[in-house]
Design a protein around this nucleic acid. Sequence first.
DNA 1: CATTCTAGATCGAACGCTCATTCTATGTTA
DNA 2: TAACATAGAATGAGCGTTCGATCTAGAATG
Lengths: 215, 215
Amino acid sequence: MLLQTDYDHENRQMCPGPAERSRADARRAQILAAAVDCFRQHGFHGASIAQISKAAGMSPGHIYHYFENKEAIISAIVAGDLERFLILTSEIRSACNVREAMLDRVAEGIDQCLDHQTAGLKLEIVAEASRNPHVAEIVRSADKVCRESLMLTMRDMRRAAGHEDDDATLAAMVEVFVSMFEGLQIRTIRNPGIDRSVVIPLFQHSLRALLDQTP
Amino acid sequence: MLLQTDYDHENRQMCPGPAERSRADARRAQILAAAVDCFRQHGFHGASIAQISKAAGMSPGHIYHYFENKEAIISAIVAGDLERFLILTSEIRSACNVREAMLDRVAEGIDQCLDHQTAGLKLEIVAEASRNPHVAEIVRSADKVCRESLMLTMRDMRRAAGHEDDDATLAAMVEVFVSMFEGLQIRTIRNPGIDRSVVIPLFQHSLRALLDQTP
DNA sequence: CATTCTAGATCGAACGCTCATTCTATGTTA
DNA sequence: TAACATAGAATGAGCGTTCGATCTAGAATG
């Protein structure tokens, strides 16, 4: 939803149907998929429009019908990435036993962080955010939403266990919680031989200690 | 020591003295400092030789007297970065009470990870390693040394507390341990408003749980 | 001590290339 | 026919890198 220039031009007689409503949206998705591929392989600045256009099966010039410039493609990818993350957190939040749902899904989260391709692009995005103010703003505002969602989740979880924490403590819990996962993205680059099956139980142990801590 | 082409040409009557022995080494350091600055601001591929040469106060061509090409500059920075990390871990290892030394230095480590400038460059390096095989090799071989050093440290620490762990468990402990710190580097970009004074005690709590765990 | 020599230090213009972006012409579709 | 889709060449800027010319400081020479 973010960053989608309203471009609907009457929208094909009311059928928002099958994920790709208009030809324009299909082309847009096609470009984004190709760009993700290229950015993974060469980085934001290493990948050229020529490469992306070749991967997307169209001419370089044609890309500019759908995106204002290269940075707009980057922004769209970042926005899509974070939209997906928001969906994940809202899924966790809607589970009946949130604490167990969280711990159960740790393995899934770890596997996602350990995926080399995914991790590479995520790191590329953060590195870009550390110097590109426009990307930084997208990343930070979405991160804020994610943190707030996680804070609410944790407050419920802690209340159910009889703890009442102030906001600062909850925020810190969220930071440490997220740190561990995001750190794994770096780990998988620096040590591709990491053994997931041994890391998972340790991870769960540490998370339990974090979530159950008494101040 | 790494990446220093033997370039001594008789070395000024035997005085390896004050950190910068020859003029060439001084220039080299000057270029590296300027490059670090530029890379932080624009990334490895966003920063140009022209920019770096201006920041270093010399002509573009002159840089090529000291570095074969741009990637050699990147490699030198990565190598220097990791050399410093190795010094840090060896310092921790040589403390008398290693466990307490480690927990004491958590705050220091956190502050370092939370430094926006440092974190930005570290992330740039990892992102580059995720696609540049040459950088990846430097990063991974140094990471291996660091992990081995940390494993030995942890084994001693755990033995002193009466635990005997196998290598896989120790390796996993190291991974989770390092994950938490490296994750902070991402956190400080995604949420610059992070409150260190609340995060530190939580961090220490979680680390204690990790280091003292009974299998 | 003055002069010449020389080799490294340094410069900055020039090269060839690739980039992001633009523009015009043509194809397609309804 | 009208509006949009698409191609691909053109543009100009900027890139990493090379190269020949100049500068400089100390060694060699007288």
